[in-house]
Simulated scan of single mutants.
Amino acid sequence: MRKLKAAALAAALSLGFLAAPAAQAAEGHISIPDTRFSFDGVFGTFDRGELQRGFQVYKEVCAACHSLRLLSYRNLRDIGLSEAEVAAIAASYQIQDGPNDNGEMFERPGRASDRFRKPFANDAAARAANNGALPPDLSVITKARVGGADYIHALLTGYQDPPPAGVTVMEGMHYNKYFPGHQIGMAPPINSDGQLQYADGTRATVDQMARDVSTFLTWAAEPELEQRRAMGVRVILFLVILGGLTYAVKRKVWADVH
């Protein structure tokens, strides 16, 4: 069942994410709601609980079809997981390695230093498993799509069944009020409350799961976001202090002239 849900997510995201930029230009009237994430704004930070739950959504729903090729398992320590937890997660995957002394490739349990395992050996295999659609890598998807995390959250929560009165949905398509054109060829991947059982006991509503995975994918695209913002604040404070000192020195030097 999870594989079917993951396949639906793969088709949805590949159709939605790949078509979104051009389609949004033509469908400029579609307004993506502001979800108001914890990391919004100059002083925004990632909520570690949301990050860990978002990873769980990615792992249980998305990972069967979507890669995160720019991340290593050890990066998960940055979302609050312990070294033991990271090691256990990595070891739960079989990673291709080699060649060995006989020139053959082999599989071994994953290590924390390994990149996230790709769900398919190559693009052709990915297309064959998803009715010709290529599930995009999600490493930087929030930076690559207009709206970022807001767009992902809106897409995952924007399904409407039945569709609005007077709207005819083509066979095999689904109505999504935030998808350009409003008709998308995927079933809703996050389709009911309680679809997952969160490890921390948080109630897994559709909105919560969409918010959590959107937060996780934003962190995956910009894991240095918090450090960069902190550095920016320090630089601004330094420049303010330096400007004040410079002005004070100028007043002192030119005091006799005035």
Rank of each mutant, 00 (worst) to 15 (best):
P223S: 13
A12C: 14
Y175W: 15
A19Y: 05
A129M: 09
H174Y: 15
L196F: 12
A210D: 07
Y93H: 10
I79R: 08
I30G: 05
R108K: 09
A210S: 13
V257W: 12
A126V: 06
P180N: 06
I79Q: 07
Y58Q: 00
R36Y: 08
K250H: 15
R69G: 10
F39V: 01
A124W: 04
R234D: 07
E85I: 04
S14M: 07
L245F: 12
S192C: 13
L196T: 01
R203G: 02
K59Y: 05
F106T: 12
K59M: 06
A11H: 13
A6S: 15
M231Q: 15
T45C: 11
M231S: 13
P33Q: 08
L68A: 06
R229H: 13
R48E: 13
R145N: 11
R53H: 05
C62D: 02
I184Q: 08
L245M: 14
P180Y: 05
L134Y: 13
E224I: 05
Y58G: 01
A20T: 02
V86F: 12
N122Q: 06
V240R: 11
E224L: 10
A129I: 09
T35S: 10
A10V: 04
A204H: 04
C65T: 05
A129Q: 12
D40W: 00
G194F: 13
R2D: 14
G243F: 05
P99F: 07
A199L: 06
G194Q: 07
D114P: 03
V57Q: 08
A187Y: 12
I30H: 06
A210M: 06
P33T: 08
T35Y: 03
G110V: 11
I241D: 06
A133K: 04
D200G: 09
A149I: 02
A11D: 14
L237H: 08
A126G: 12
R229Y: 02
A221N: 02
Y151I: 00
R203I: 07
A26M: 03
G98H: 04
M231P: 00
P136Q: 01
G80K: 11
G166N: 09
F46N: 00
G28S: 15
D137F: 07
E222F: 01
L196E: 07
F179E: 03
R145W: 00
